[in-house]
Design a protein around this nucleic acid. Structure first.
Length: 743
DNA sequence: CTAGCTGCTGTTTTT
DNA sequence: CAGCAGCTAG
């Protein structure tokens, strides 16, 4: 027992050994938060306070859940399977699956990821003949998810205007469609299980008396609905142990509500917040930067990280002319770090948005540096995998219209829009699923078909000639029916193999020029299925499909090699690295332009920056580029304000700002310039080539601060430039009066 | 019905 | 610079 506790500092020890009561732990970055959580669980079990059965722990990512399980397993010789440890979504899934009848769901209900959800919505909008100018599918999706997050069903949303009424109509229709198909989206997982607990006293009391301890990781990221879910699940005898850090709340955009921490304090009568402020991760300079930066935010619970380590190295700042140069710089530095003996896997390249990884990847590839990109297009989100999963879904449940539509004509088998519209009309009039309509059609018109199909499906096991793909609706129906029949008795990996072979997916991608990667991914799917069978307790097809929706990002090929880690700042949360490169630190990118309009947007961006900075243990690089290719055109940006918010004493500018910068040729060609601002024509451009005031030039204005020239016009006394300032937007300035300084 | 083209648009972060 | 919707020629 004591061995568990020896390595803890006084605050950690207090948190871990707290008696049976609810508690709120404010745990700064790198303060041993996961250690406290896992040690607490181990301590509770080892002291006999509770059995593994009585513990529920909830995290935000699958990665974190896995990490927690691994650490607990290392501390205690127990079977972790009985413990409920997972993400909110994962646990809700588990709950709904166990009580699917009470929740009004089919046993094999499937989960829609956001792309699937969008597809369903698009379909519905089309069906209802909605004006997609006025009602973009994405907005409808947003509306629905928001309503669910508020705990509202379509019938409960109050609509006082036509627009909202229309939205509610779509929502109702969407609800209906999902129920019919037996599918649930992410928000539905939460809402459904919330409603289940709310309405079903027996279920609720069962879990309330079962879970004596509920532990919540990243509590600052819980949404309103998640919090209500927790409050419902916690019985009078349940101790809720919440660990969070308001400064690391970076998911407000999807409903996270820091206010939950305050509310929790009151609802659960927390006498005193335990603060963990000693940081075991980073050196002093890095912590200084983080502390000073985050002090610019208001309404914090308040916390200051400190370390017993020294100041360490300064934070390196690099000012690159272009994104391309920035990437080259990073590659050089990575190489010398490697030469110093730093493992590549201990180096992270972080960026604000996924699109930024391209330049970096390009440079790394050319330098033959192995790297691994997290996030972005995930394995289970790739189109070939989605196609394959759709076939599997049809095998599990052919009523799944969404899956059917995805693959009914992929690979192409001669089922066009016309026949599909016919079917959909039929469904609209007579109800039922597309699949049923198809069956009716085949059976009704050509009773002979089903006889034929039975014969051919009997021969499937023989693997004769790789059967020629049958075309038309009959062919499709025969294919799915034969797959369903054959797969009834097969183990999961063989189901996948059989499906890949007979669906024609393999054949299709073999014929495609760029299909090699896709084939490899499809093979990888078989591997994933095999791995799943070994790990999961229930290895049925339906459960595997759920796993695929919920853990879209977990499965990444090529994990073993020592490689650089590329990811967004969001996905870096909770991780740490010897060295961190933070690139693209430009106004507009980080803080992102879109956060300007949102309430609290800037503060969330700052917290994001805080998270990024605190990932570094020893060395931190901050870099920005004066010009960057984005969405197909060159953009000019000034450095992020966040760099100014860091004490300059801890920074070391690697390429000091040059007063006499060597002039680069203006990246905009005259034709582009004309296309953008036809009224100024050659004039501005010619002028620009002759004077130091040219597009892309960084300048400082006495009143408006730092900016960058984005346009030139006129000459002599009339010469004007358009300057984009970070905080004050863009302004046209007369060069004669505006005292600009070139940087 | 299919494939291939054009032209348009939308762009943050994720379970 | 995507990815996608819509159109057109086979």
């Amino acid at each position: 027992m004591s061995s568990l506790l020896t390595a803890l500092n006084p605050e950690q020890l207090e948190a871990v050994t707290l008696p049976h009561q609810s508690a709120l732990v404010l745990a700064g970055a790198g303060s041993g938060k996961t250690k406290v959580l896992t040690t607490r669980i181990a301590y509770l079990i080892q002291s006999g306070e509770v059995s593994p059965h009585g513990i529920l722990a909830v995290t935000f990512t699958n990665k974190a859940a896995k990490e927690m399980l691994t650490r607990i397993a290392a501390m205690l010789p127990i079977n972790t399977r009985g413990m409920w440890i997972g993400t909110f979504h994962g646990l809700c899934n588990r709950l709904l699956r166990a009580h699917h009848q009470d929740a009004g769901l089919p046993q094999t209900f499937q989960i829609l990821d956001s792309a699937d959800q969008l597809a369903v919505i698009k379909r519905i909008l089309k069906n209802l003949g909605a004006d997609d100018e006025k009602f973009p599918p994405r907005q409808v999706q947003w509306f629905i998810n928001n309503a669910k997050e508020e705990g509202l069903r379509a019938s409960q949303v109050e609509a006082y205007d036509d627009y909202t009424r229309k939205m509610v109509e779509f929502y109702a229709s969407y609800e209906h469609q999902c129920n019919k198909e037996g599918v649930v989206d992410f928000a539905e997982l939460l809402l459904r299980s919330y409603e289940l607990l709310m309405r079903n006293e027996i279920v609720r009391e069962h879990y309330r008396s079962r879970f004596l301890h509920i532990l919540v990781d990243e509590f600052q990221d819980t949404s309103r609905l998640q919090y209500k879910w927790l409050r419902l699940l916690a019985g009078p005898k349940t101790a809720v142990f919440a660990v969070g850090d308001d400064d690391q709340s970076i998911y407000a955009f999807r409903g996270a509500n820091t206010g939950n921490m305050r509310e929790f304090e009151q609802d659960f009568r927390i006498p005193r917040i335990i603060k963990l402020e000693q940081n075991y991760r980073s050196h002093g300079n890095i912590l200084d930067a983080a502390n000073t930066l985050i002090r610019n935010n208001n309404g914090r619970l308040g916390k200051n990280l400190w370390t017993s380590e020294g100041r360490g190295e300064p934070i390196r700042v690099y000012n690159a002319p272009t994104d391309f140069d920035e990437a080259a710089f990073i590659v050089d530095e990575v190489k010398s770090l490697r030469a110093e003996g730093v493992q590549l896997s201990q180096i992270a390249l972080l960026y604000r948005s996924n699109a930024q990884s391209r330049v970096l990847e390009h440079a790394l590839f050319n330098a033959s540096l192995p790297y691994r990109v997290y996030g972005g297009m995930r394995f289970f989100e790739r189109q070939e995998i989605k196609h394959a999963l759709a076939y599997l879904r049809m095998i599990a449940n052919p009523e799944d219209d969404n899956a059917l539509l995805r693959i009914v004509n992929f690979p192409a088998r001669g089922i066009g829009l016309r026949s599909l519209e016919q079917l959909q009309d039929e469904v609209r009039q007579q109800g039922g699923s597309l699949w049923e309509a198809m069956l009716k059609k085949c059976r009704g018109r050509e009773p002979a078909t089903s006889g034929l199909l039975n014969k051919s499906s009997a021969g499937v096991g023989e693997n004769k000639e790789p059967d020629r793909p049958r075309r038309g609706i009959e062919g499709f129906v025969a294919l799915i029916e034969s797959m369903r029949q054959v797969c009834e008795t097969l183990p999961l990996p063989e189901i996948v193999e059989h499906m890949l072979e007979h669906s024609g997916l393999i054949r299709h991608y073999q014929a495609e020029r760029e299909g090699a990667d896709r084939l490899e991914n499809l093979n990888e799917l078989v591997t994933a299925a095999t791995a799943f069978v070994h790990e999961a307790e229930d290895d049925g097809l339906a459960v595997f499909l759920n796993h695929a929706s919920l853990e879209a990002g977990e499965h990444q090929a090529g994990g073993g090699e020592d490689a650089l880690q590329l990811m967004t700042v969001h996905s870096a949360k909770g991780l740490e690295f010897h060295s961190v490169f933070l690139s693209g630190l430009e106004e507009g990118l980080f803080p992102h332009d879109n956060s300007r309009n949102e309430a609290g947007g800037l503060e969330e961006e700052r917290r994001l920056m805080y998270v990024a900075v605190t990932r570094a243990k020893r060395r931190l690089y901050l870099s920005f580029a004066q010009s960057r290719m984005l969405h197909g055109q060159t953009r000019y940006n000034i450095p992020t304000r966040f760099i100014e918010e860091i004490p300059q004493g801890v920074l070391k500018w690697l390429q000091p700002v040059q007063k006499t910068a060597p002039w680069r040729p203006a990246p905009l060609s005259p034709t582009q310039e004309v296309a953008q601002r036809p009224q100024i024509r050659e004039m501005g451009v010619r002028e620009a080539t002759a004077s130091p005031w040219r597009v892309g030039q960084n300048v400082v204005h006495a009143k408006f601060g730092a900016g960058v020239i984005v346009n030139c016009e006129g000459r002599g006394a009339d010469a004007r430039v358009e300057v984009k300032f970070g905080r004050n937007g863009s302004k046209w300035l007369l060069l004669e009066y505006a005292k600009l300084t070139a940087l």
